[in-house]
């Protein structure tokens, strides 16, 4: 690297800074907004003149937000667990077994990955009202896990193809029963892929807005993105900008944590699943 000229390094440095600014600035802006006092809210500054927790206190005082937060976490977690469980089974079959219909399964996942959610909103809205799961956790979990299944199957089968399955043989010769070989060798090797997939699926469910506003009508199941959107309408004259900003920051925290700690895995998961399919 010593040979790398100074101009070269400077150029990459500038490019890197531009990329980082591009990616983070809007996030920084809304975070700054969330720490502003209502009186300075409109100053347009990038750094709050006076830092305040007022907005956060405000949203955590209302059940509108706290309830939505609980809904968001619960619904996203349950959907993730189910989607990853079903996805793991299917991906194992896709990566390791020969059976007719594999192509159909893969094609079907692809179709669903491309499916416009709005097309499902009207029938699901009606069906869920009829069978009584409208505005419940289940009512959201069902579409979430369905739409994240293709993602789970793709990512997991890409990961599973990478596992050196020879090790299973080695374990058997080393004296393991099939169950032991699975538990002591295959599970530890598959776990990182499953975990990465879980993160991606969680982000996907956490992110949804369309189903959240269409299939809920009260606090019972409304998730944070939907709840935030309803903050706005509360008053014509006093914009709840501060509250929205604070709520936005709160639901961004898990994303930031994932990205900070699992950057490598997320990149690997997204790239392997997408191209090798």
């Amino acid at each position: 690297m010593a040979a790398v000229g100074k101009t070269h390094a400077t150029r990459w440095g500038v490019l890197n800074v531009v990329v980082v600014l591009y990616a983070l600035f809007p996030v920084w802006w809304i975070a700054a907004l969330s720490f502003k006092d209502p009186s300075t809210l409109t100053d347009g500054d990038y750094i709050p003149r006076e830092w305040t927790w007022e907005n956060y206190r405000g949203i955590f005082d209302t059940s509108e937000f706290t309830r939505a937060l609980v809904n968001s976490i619960g619904i996203a977690l349950i959907s993730t667990v189910i989607a990853v469980a079903l996805g793991t089974m299917a991906a194992y079959a896709v990566a390791r077994l020969r059976f007719p219909g594999k192509k159909v399964l893969i094609g079907m996942s692809l179709l669903i990955a491309m499916f416009p959610p709005i097309s499902l909103v009207s029938p699901l809205f009606n069906i869920e009202r009829i069978i009584g799961i409208f505005d419940t956790w289940i009512g959201l979990i069902i579409p979430y896990m369905t739409f994240s299944l293709p993602l789970a199957i793709y990512t997991l089968s890409a990961f599973f193809r990478e596992i050196p399955w020879d090790l299973e043989k080695a374990a058997k010769v080393d004296g393991a029963t099939p169950a032991q070989a699975f538990r002591m060798v295959i599970v530890p090797l598959a776990a990182p892929g499953v975990f990465t997939t879980a993160i991606l699926v969680f982000i996907f469910c956490w992110n949804d807005f369309l189903f959240a506003i269409s299939l809920t009508s009260t606090e019972a199941a409304r998730t944070v993105p939907a709840a935030i959107a309803f903050f706005t309408g509360s008053s014509q004259f006093q914009q709840p900008t501060g509250s929205i900003a604070a709520a936005a920051v709160v639901i961004t925290i898990p994303i930031i944590l994932f990205v900070l700690f699992f950057q490598r895995r997320i990149v690997a998961g997204l790239t392997s699943g997408a191209v090798k399919g």
Binding site: A23, V267, L270
Partner: peptide, 18 residues
């Protein structure tokens, strides 16, 4: 790479409000 993942991961509604 980490910072580039932020827009990918962030909730669309949050970004839209920003």
């Amino acid at each position: 790479r980490t910072s580039v993942l932020v827009p990918y991961g962030i909730v669309t509604v949050v970004a839209a409000f920003s």
